[in-house]
Design a protein around this nucleic acid. Structure first.
Lengths: 153, 153
DNA sequence: CGCAAAATGCTACACTGTTGCATTAGCATT
DNA sequence: AATGCTAATGCAACAGTGTAGCATTTTGCG
């Protein structure tokens, strides 16, 4: 949001730039999100924190995620199940579609697909936000399937 | 499914035609769904059953809804919250978009809007099903807002 | 350092949905 | 109408996801 010549680069700077205090959980979560290729659920995050031996509390993790989303440092996405997914960024993210892979379960952002196409809604409806989600096989899983089929398993 | 000249009309016939036993809960749920103008959650249904003095059990209601969906007699839709919505039909329903009204909270089917438009996904993605949901103000609520604003509240 | 506010870590709870299992009831058949 | 098989129910218990309240700790600042 600020027009500094040196925007914050690392997690600690990012947090501070948003007026938040730098804490163990915020740092770790931000870094995990930044390094993940796809969105992560609360549960995924908790597992990775444990794996990294970062002590944490369920509730604090929920609150940390809420805060990151509030600050525009993370992006909250619906998953195929009842749990939210989170990924890094969102600050400068334009509306985009998502992809739920039926094979690996990952939820991916399709930045290149805009849901704002001109749909003709019935008279009287006033849409303000459009959610577009594809379900199927993602690029990674598609490659694996192709390989297996080619191999003639 | 069957090509009879006299397709089942009432709830009991519908249930029987699908090889199910005719029970209190199934009858009541089907009738409530048929007479509702918008989709209903498990909780909505439970409330209406209570209002109609139809004794019922939480679990049985869940199972009844599962069965109706399985049989194509009902249609299961995601809501804005974590709860599913259900509406009558689905048997001969083509894929269509949905509308979540931010004002009244209703979830509506937009049968006229098809999500199968030609979106250009990145290389390798194989979509099999597309979910298209609009969030905003529905036609009913839009009318009310218009009236209030015109009245100069 | 010392302080105030922010953030944490508990515990407890709410909501949505599922599982297992003994019991009941629908319905086809006698 | 009675019988019997099995679908369907009702109950209790549990699982996953998320929230509320509140005392305690930590952070960052002056």
């Amino acid at each position: 949001m600020s027009a500094t010549l040196h925007p914050p680069r690392n997690s600690a700077e990012l947090i501070a730039a948003h007026g938040g205090r730098i804490t163990r959980t915020r740092l770790a979560v931000l870094e995990i999100l930044q390094s993940s290729g796809h969105s992560l659920s609360h549960d995924d995050l908790a597992a990775r924190l444990s794996a990294a031996a970062v002590p944490h509390d369920r509730v604090t993790l929920y609150r940390t995620l809420d805060w990151l989303v509030e600050q525009g440092l993370a992006h909250r996405i619906k998953g195929p199940d009842r749990a939210w997914r989170f990924n890094f960024g969102g600050e400068n993210a334009a509306p985009h579609a998502h992809f739920h892979c039926d094979r690996c379960g990952h939820v991916l952002c399709l930045e290149s697909v805009r849901p704002d196409e001109g749909f003709a809604l019935p008279e009287g409806y006033r849409p303000e936000r459009t959610e577009l989600v594809f379900h199927g096989t993602c690029a990674d899983c598609g490659r694996q399937v192709g390989r297996n089929e080619a191999g003639g398993s």
